[in-house]
């Protein structure tokens, strides 16, 4: 009987102390910190469809929209560059709008992005991509890309990629 009671008290003590220790562990977390140096780098901006919302391709020709940043220009193809770690991309972005915000995270900065584009998957196949807009100051068909230098822990904001569905840029792949 005494042994059972001792076992019971030990059981209570072990669990109780474990709980208190867990609580102390949680006190180490600090949450949001405005002073923390950001180790990752971001590029934030908008894709603006200058030809208007109505100029978008039909849904069966516009499956997916992403903004992709390439380390090299011209790239070979999107998937190949991603698989070799030479391209960074956003999550799937909303389509059929005329202003679409985006946010790309870059691992292992500093680095230079030579070619930043809005890319549209126009087929059910994951290999069928088309560049519909380039980050550039050039409005000609060539749309000479504007380079971006990504510093460690920095955020580059207000990057705008213009898309004109009536005048698509030169396709690199």
């Amino acid at each position: 009987m005494g042994y059972l009671n001792l076992k019971k008290i030990c059981c209570h003590k072990i669990i109780f102390i474990t709980l208190l220790l867990n609580l102390l562990t949680f006190s180490c977390y600090e949450g949001l910190d405005p002073t923390k140096e950001i180790s990752e780098s971001f590029v934030k901006g908008k894709v603006i469809v200058t030809s208007g919302k109505s100029s978008w391709y039909a849904p069966d020709s516009a499956y997916e929209l992403r903004v992709v940043g390439f380390k090299k220009y011209p790239p070979t193809d999107i998937l190949g560059e991603i698989l070799t770690g030479n391209a960074f991309f956003t999550d799937t972005l909303p389509r059929f709008l005329d202003t679409i915000p985006f946010n790309i995270k870059f691992q292992k900065p500093p680095l230079e992005i030579q070619y930043l584009v809005a890319a549209l998957r126009y087929d059910t196949s994951i290999f069928k991509w088309k560049v519909i807009g380039v980050f550039s100051d050039d409005t000609s068909f060539e749309r000479t890309p504007r380079k971006l230098f990504i510093e460690k822990g920095k955020i580059i904001e207000n990057v705008v990629i213009y898309v004109d569905f009536r005048r698509l840029p030169k396709q690199p792949f």
Binding site: S27, G31, D91, P101, N103
Partner: peptide, 20 residues
């Protein structure tokens, strides 16, 4: 929703919640 970035600065600042 990433579209919140149009109006809210640091819209994606979020962490797990530990409240005692």
């Amino acid at each position: 929703d990433d579209m919140l970035s149009l109006q809210v600065e640091d819209y994606d600042a979020r962490v797990p919640i530990y409240v005692l």
